[in-house]
Write a protein that binds this DNA or RNA. Structure first.
Lengths: 227, 227
DNA sequence: TAGATTGTTAATCGATTAACAATC
DNA sequence: TAGATTGTTAATCGATTAACAATC
């Protein structure tokens, strides 16, 4: 070993999905701590307490971003924010098309936060004649018939699916044929895609089931408590 | 042991959350198989193949609903659908209030599927004067100032939060004070609640991160493949 | 220095997967 | 009957949690 620290590369360690999902939560928290209270250094203990995550979990999660802390002091908030953004690739924006400019699609188009997460929705597509040609939240609405050509021309890799259930599979097929590699599916329909295509399905039924089961359990326990 | 099978009760076995999230997926699939192809019996192998879940996983998941299959034949589709609905409590509806009648709120109000999942959104609340007093998707819009009283009067237990980030915590507090026990949080803000209150946070940043990381990995692998 | 906190290695826990006997 | 599929028990895997030495 020389004095120069050799950064060992090794095979890319797999990132646990739960960790990945928590990183944006830490990021939001850190941003808030910085803005509201101008905190410079922070410990896993404090993060954990505030977010109701066990501190050791926080440490493990942050480790994956290669952030280093100082014993006794904690992590530099600025550095941590930066490391998370770097790790998540929020510093280089990628572009996406959104198909289905209904209420849900409009809501997503109107959510400016995505830009901070490295995502920019460049255009929307819809079959409704009254919407085609207009702008929604500053983005042009094109007919779905233009989708394939535009995906190819602009080299778009991500598609956001906000169409009704019955149209979901067909639009997904079109997206894939055009060259889209990742689909963010907000439709209530599971879609079939070829191997190698990534689908992230926001399944509200699944989420609702988790919430209602927990709720049912709480209410049952409350009842038992009064007996 | 008599001839009568004694159904052993035992302590309620904990339900793995991943299983819970998959049950609605099976349900949707089964409904589709029934409707489109009139399938009467189905095996875990087939379900697994179609949904790209390993068959043994499917079996384990279905086991929790107490559904029983016939060796060689598989499960009765009708019975399975019924058992899942029963297990998830989709046969008795519960009511919810929605706060924030923007595009996202409107989208949720317009999604009729919730009724099949045992959820009915009875009313919406908003501070926008142009919305208050109108109907959206057939539901009356009330001012937020009426929320507390109406939650109490109607004994509502679930709140759906579709307000902008900066209003989220305040509305959540109001909900909790009024007696809401479960909050379905669609705002991009993590909310603090007292112990015992259930929060299901639809965190789009988390989902996006998972999708983009996977996408980045695929694109990287594709690149390596061409070299 | 003393002690809080990080970094790292080991133990635990829970979900997934495998193995195999029972059965229609 | 033969064989596919269920039901059930065991093994594996990965994420979480614990333990403890290193360090500022």
């Amino acid at each position: 070993m020389t004095e120069l620290e050799i950064k060992k590369e090794g095979p890319p360690k797999p990132i646990p999905e739960p960790t990945l999902r928590r990183l944006p939560v830490y990021h939001q928290y850190l941003k808030k701590m910085k803005a509201e209270r101008n905190v410079d250094f922070i410990s896993c203990t404090q993060i954990g307490n505030d977010l109701k995550i066990v501190p050791i979990q926080v440490r493990k999660d942050l480790e994956i971003t290669d952030a280093v802390g100082k014993p006794k002091l904690g992590y530099s908030v600025d550095e941590l924010i930066h490391m998370i953004e770097d790790f998540l690739g929020w510093n280089n924006t990628s572009e996406a098309f959104l198909v289905g400019a209904g209420n849900l699609g409009t809501a997503l188009l109107g959510y400016n936060g995505f830009r901070n997460y490295g995502l920019y929705i460049v255009a929307a597509f819809d079959n409704n004649e009254r919407k085609v040609g207009t702008q929604i939240e500053g983005r042009q609405v094109f007919p779905v018939s233009k989708l394939t050509e535009m995906v190819r021309r602009m080299n778009i890799r991500m598609g956001i699916l906000t169409v009704p259930a019955q149209a979901a599979q067909e639009i997904a097929d079109t997206m894939v044929r055009a060259g889209i590699l990742g689909i963010w599916n907000f439709s209530p329909m599971k879609i079939d895609v070829p191997a190698g295509i990534i689908v992230q399905h926001e399944n509200l039924a699944s989420s609702l089931v988790v919430l209602s089961k927990k709720l049912a359990l709480t209410m049952q326990q409350n009842l038992e408590g009064t007996r």
